[in-house]
Computed example of a mutant assay.
Amino acid sequence: MKLTYFRNTPANFGDEINAFMWHNLVPPGFLDEDETELFLGIGSILWDHLPKSPIKHVMGSGFGGYTAPPDVHDGSWNVVWLRGPITAEKLGLDPSLAICDSAILLRATTLPPPLGGGRTVFMPHFESAARGSWQKVCALAGIDYLDPRGDCVELLSKIRGARLMITEAMHGAIVADALRVPWIPILPFFPQHRAKWEDWARSLAVTLSPATLPPSNLLETYTLFTGLPGKGQRSRAMFRSWPAAPVNKALVYRAALSLRRLAEKGAPQLSGDAEIDRATERSVEALDRFVRSRTAAPAAAGRKER
Rank of each mutant, 00 (worst) to 15 (best):
Arg236Asp: 14
Met1Ile: 09
Phe20Gly: 01
Val153Asn: 00
Ile174Arg: 03
Ile159Gly: 05
Leu262Pro: 05
Trp183His: 11
Leu93Arg: 05
Glu275Phe: 06
Asp277Lys: 13
Gly117His: 13
Thr295Phe: 00
Arg131His: 15
Asp34Arg: 12
Ala178Val: 09
Glu305Pro: 02
Leu179Tyr: 12
Thr110Ser: 10
Ile55Gln: 13
Arg234Cys: 01
Arg107Met: 11
Arg194Trp: 14
Gly272Gln: 12
Asn24Thr: 13
Met238Arg: 13
Ser271Trp: 02
Ala19Val: 03
Pro69Gly: 09
Tyr5Lys: 02
Ala301Glu: 11
Arg236Met: 12
Thr9Lys: 06
Pro113Trp: 08
Pro51Lys: 07
Thr212Asp: 09
Phe239Ile: 02
His193Lys: 14
Asp177Met: 09
Gly64Thr: 04
Leu287Asn: 02
Asp147Lys: 03
Pro229His: 12
Glu127Gly: 03
Gly161His: 09
Leu270His: 02
Pro124Tyr: 12
Leu91Ser: 07
Ile17Glu: 03
Thr9Arg: 06
Ala267Ile: 11
Trp242Phe: 04
Glu16Thr: 14
Thr167Lys: 03
Ser203Cys: 11
Trp134Glu: 07
Arg7Ala: 04
Gly75Asn: 10
Ile86Phe: 00
Phe239Tyr: 13
Glu198Pro: 00
Glu154Tyr: 01
Glu220Gln: 15
Gly132Gln: 13
Gly14Cys: 04
Ile174Ala: 06
Trp197Val: 11
Gly172Phe: 09
Ile104Met: 04
His49Met: 06
Ile45Gln: 01
Phe13Trp: 09
Arg289Pro: 01
Ala173Ile: 03
Leu111Gln: 12
Gly75Thr: 11
Trp134Ile: 11
Ile166Lys: 02
Gly92Gln: 02
Tyr66Phe: 15
Leu179Ser: 11
Phe63Gln: 10
Pro10Asn: 08
Asp277Ser: 15
Ala244Pro: 04
Asn8Trp: 14
Cys138Lys: 08
Ser157His: 11
Ala68Gly: 07
Pro124Glu: 11
Ser102Met: 04
Pro85Asn: 09
Asp94Phe: 07
Ala297Cys: 06
Lys136Ile: 00
Leu218Val: 10
Val79Leu: 06
Glu127Lys: 14
Ala169Cys: 10
Gly230Lys: 01
Gln135Lys: 15
Pro214Thr: 11
Glu89Arg: 15
Ala103Pro: 06
Ala68Lys: 13
Ala205Asp: 15
Lys90His: 10
Val121Cys: 12
Leu3Asp: 09
Leu219Gln: 15
Gly302Glu: 12
Thr221Val: 03
Asp71Ala: 08
Ala11Asp: 04
Leu270Ala: 13
Leu25Ser: 05
Lys304Asp: 07
Ala267Thr: 15
Asp94Tyr: 09
Phe290Asp: 00
Asn248His: 12
Val206Phe: 07
Cys152His: 04
Val247His: 00
Arg261Lys: 14
Leu156Ala: 07
Trp47Tyr: 15
Arg83His: 12
Leu259Asp: 01
Thr223Phe: 00
Pro85Glu: 05
His193Val: 08
Ser271Ile: 03
Gly64Leu: 05
Asp71Arg: 08
Lys90Glu: 14
Leu287Met: 10
Ser76Asp: 05
Asn78Trp: 02
Ala169Thr: 01
Pro70Asp: 01
Ile166Pro: 04
Ala263Lys: 00
His57Leu: 02
Glu154Leu: 08
Ser133Thr: 08
Asp32Val: 10
Leu46Ile: 10
